[in-house]
Design a protein around this nucleic acid. Structure first.
Length: 315
DNA sequence: CACCAGGGTACCT
DNA sequence: AGGTACCATGGT
């Protein structure tokens, strides 16, 4: 289970200051501090876009670009610590999307009440820029699974079939996300043993296609979003929803708008109300209404409606 | 204990 | 084009 999100935030109030260079101790290149504004690390790491972060004692631990990373958000900065020395921190800045001007994103949103409330609930939530393969594979495992269960399946998959990663002394073992080749070499029953059920043949077939070079995930960065989506949907177990997740969370295509049960619920409740709209109608609406960063709007709506549900359940 | 979960696919009308 | 059963597992 993920930790509480009790760090209330007054720090975001105010300016629109661009990201400044990180400060790091010259004598210790295992850690760095990034000054941030309008950044909500809890919401960002616990909003269902990634599945490998765990919060313990106010500190987030995860794996980024094959490295063990610990993150702590205090005051106006995010402190990062790694197991091994790092000279260039751009991989982490890119992953966390520290350079994004979130106020400029909000400025493109339609000015309606539901979206305003969703943004107020978790202002500072960022879309990450994740590894393409990990993102794709994780969302193949996501279908009709609760986020908690996706986290468990992914953790099991990494422990059993990933590589051990260096951690600081005293920390629990960490594992990389298995590569397409690593998964391609397994059997369906190996994967079913990781509790992924009917998703196992999908993941296996897609891993084999990627490992075999049928589709180059790197190359998708360079093609238009519609074309990238079309290519992703060719993969077994990947439909429009999962393709949109990958386009949004790993490629940074911010018009990708994943329509899952929660977002469908939110759209029905706030933007349609009366006659039950068809899925096609909601697709068209979301594509034209929310603007050039509609994927961001989607993530705020998703996080807000789920947070509301969690609060209601705990009462 | 029912109900449901960040869906996709094959098959139906 | 638009609807439906089925898929496997376990959280709430």
């Amino acid at each position: 289970l993920t930790g509480d999100a009790s760090e209330t935030s007054a720090w975001f109030a105010g300016f629109n200051c661009s990201h400044t260079a990180a400060s790091s101790d010259m004598n210790d290149n295992h850690q760095v501090t990034f000054p941030v504004r309008d950044y909500d690390l809890d919401a960002t790491l616990d909003c269902g876009q990634s599945f490998r972060w765990r919060k313990t004692g106010g500190v987030w631990r995860g794996i980024v670009a094959g490295r063990w990373v610990e993150l702590q958000h205090t005051g106006g900065s995010i402190a990062a610590r790694t197991a091994e020395p790092v000279d260039d921190w751009r991989w982490l800045e890119e992953y966390l999307q520290l350079q994004i001007d979130i106020a400029a994103v909000f400025a493109t949103f339609p000015n309606d009440e539901p979206l305003r409330r969703a943004v107020d609930e978790c202002r500072g939530l960022r879309l990450l820029k994740q590894d393409h393969w990990e993102c794709l594979a994780s969302f193949i495992l996501s279908s009709t699974k609760q986020i908690v269960q996706i986290q468990q399946i992914v953790a099991l998959l990494c422990e059993r079939h990933g590589n051990a990663i260096p951690t600081p002394g005293g920390e629990a073992h960490a594992f990389s996300f298995p590569t397409p080749s690593q998964l391609a070499a397994l059997s369906e029953s190996d994967l079913r043993a990781c509790k992924m059920g009917f998703r196992a043949p999908y993941l296996l077939a897609t891993a084999r296609k990627i490992a075999g070079g049928d589709l180059n995930l790197e190359r998708l960065r360079t093609v238009p979003v519609e074309q990238a989506r079309e290519q992703l949907i060719q993969l077994p177990g990947v439909g429009e929803k999962i393709a949109n997740c990958v386009l949004l969370y790993s490629y940074g295509f911010q018009t990708a708008f994943p329509l899952d049960v929660w977002v469908i619920r939110a759209l029905r409740e706030f933007y349609f109300k009366r006659p039950k709209p068809t899925l096609a109608r909601m697709k068209r609406f979301s594509a034209e209404y929310f603007g050039p960063h509609s994927g961001y709007a989607q993530q705020y709506l998703f996080h807000w409606i789920r947070t509301r549900q969690r609060k209601a359940a705990s009462r």
